[in-house]
Design a protein around this nucleic acid. Sequence first.
DNA 1: TACGCCAATGCAATCGATTGCATTGCATAA
DNA 2: TTATGCAATGCAATCGATTGCATTGGCGTA
Lengths: 356, 356
Amino acid sequence: METKAPKKKIQTMAELAREAGVSASTASRALRNSPLISKETIERVQSVAKEHSYRPHLGARNLRLKKNNVIVLILPFNYAEEDVLGNPYIFKIVGTIGSKLREIGYDLLLSQMDDISEEIDDRYVHAGIAEGAIILGRGDNDTAKLKRLEETGIPFVILGPILDNQTYCSVGIDNKSSGCMAVHHLAKLGRKRIAIVSDNREDPNAESYARFQGYKQALDELGYPFDPDLVGPSTHSGKSGYDAVQHLLKTAPDLDAIFVATSDVVAISVMQALRNAGKHVPDDVAIVGFDNIDMCNFVSPSLTSISQRLKDEVAHLLVEKLLDQINGKQVESVMLNGSLVVRRSCGSQTDYPLRV
Amino acid sequence: METKAPKKKIQTMAELAREAGVSASTASRALRNSPLISKETIERVQSVAKEHSYRPHLGARNLRLKKNNVIVLILPFNYAEEDVLGNPYIFKIVGTIGSKLREIGYDLLLSQMDDISEEIDDRYVHAGIAEGAIILGRGDNDTAKLKRLEETGIPFVILGPILDNQTYCSVGIDNKSSGCMAVHHLAKLGRKRIAIVSDNREDPNAESYARFQGYKQALDELGYPFDPDLVGPSTHSGKSGYDAVQHLLKTAPDLDAIFVATSDVVAISVMQALRNAGKHVPDDVAIVGFDNIDMCNFVSPSLTSISQRLKDEVAHLLVEKLLDQINGKQVESVMLNGSLVVRRSCGSQTDYPLRV
DNA sequence: TACGCCAATGCAATCGATTGCATTGCATAA
DNA sequence: TTATGCAATGCAATCGATTGCATTGGCGTA
């Protein structure tokens, strides 16, 4: 038998110190390889620590160092009710953020909150639980709340577009130009009656608002008239895509393309509704979705979509910007361009290679 | 103007106490409505606290109380590479667990780990960061690791089936009987050549193993012979469903049903592959998936699937069992029955009402 | 008046790791 | 021999909230 069997666990620095015949301060320094401590002592302490599988109590360390290596990730609840958690796009971002944080030694606390509010400060940052927050999404009425959050002075970043007069940091894609791109692509295919499915919020903060503006701008550039009959309302739930199609087929039965600005999940449901109504995709109606989730490759027909390049850039930037703030640096918001991934729902003839 | 504007924030108990003209101990007790403190003092302290928007430093409290109201949720990485995070089933569970925990005042730390190991203890529980762990999934080689984790004595529960000789607590569905149910349903539709798509691991710990056993048992009960040509290999990625169909159409071109035991995501990709191969679902081939994700309603044809009743029962039970352990109670593992949700991929004629 | 009791409050230790400021002891220079 | 320097280590305070045990003062009773 080796000395592999760990003896009874040493729980505290003091116990470790006693076992190694030194004081707690020396033990502490030894574990951290302080140059103040002699080589022999360092080795002895570390080997005793290993032998008894001692691990420091991070709670205590954090208190002393006023540090904690945790960031909190906020999923706004109003958003959640519309099934953020069922939205693979958000989930992927969460996972990627988690990996990035782990690489740099941070942990991730996941919190669903009714509102973006000072609670983030009270409950997490000021409370010494987390050092900053990443907020995934922003609702209609959040401007004032974000203002107050900003006044608390805690580090945070938000996933979303840059708004006018915004003084905090956000990372998002350019929804307007992305919407514009989708419509231009459909027009290039020869489509004349291009509908939009959107949750169509009036709030300029909303992503959907910017995508809708992009839709309008493209129509304008193309010389197409804007027709309210071509607007189908949706929420973020899958079912709402189905309902939007019922609506559109009444108000504009001659439509030949739909830009589903809400999400791919909704777009997939839109395609199903069209099929049930006897419409063929893409021959009768071409479809463009938003988010470019993996599933786009696996539905029939495969779904053309706008990629937010989420895995690498968005998650990476969110983390980077937040950490810069925590370390006292000034940061600027970022707006990324979306990109169009063309698949069968727009008439492309192949499904492979997969485009992810 | 009301006295609404909070004065400069009071950061510590000591400052609060000074401001209210009492000692720190009295202030602490007053905030917690201790019967030791007079009504007047309680009111005064609390109003001063409110006025200066004082919040306790939870890190300090946790250290003192040896408590932290955090549980850590482990996403095994080997699993993650196969895209757990793209799997809506897992994400939903994460969200539901988060909500449950929040209701009872706990926070959720999300951790992706390469391995289930003592690191959970070292880094989280022993370190005073979390009180226990919920582990989402278990791989082939985890038995020994779970044994060691158990020896650390930390509270944990795992999502998965109950294994022979298992001494820790798990919550999962009865994969074997679920697989059995799927096949019996397909047989009842008159299908004779029922294939299975599975990641087909030999490890009895694997969910897929149990589902495969269920498949075999059903064939047995039906008097159908087991035919290796009817087994299509897959991983958890969407693409693998596509590949499995290519394989099956060579080895068993006469198949008339597929039980996609891996997941709905794979099943959706299976359906696309069949369509591309000129096969009609359900007329030529009937399909049953596994997980019953929302998307089942929105693909064409809508997908029959086995529901793990995840939102309410599984997440709820995981949390409950873990908290019981934290509070020193004995707990027993649970095995839930799956249930079949029939949709068009098995010939059902309607998509509505949605079955979620 | 003296004593005891109890409600209300404060003091100081505690949780466990870290660190500024001594202190020790040994070696080298004056 | 005494002074000086420095490497190595220990003491005690600190982070902020909590709590066992003392202390205070006011009231009732003998």
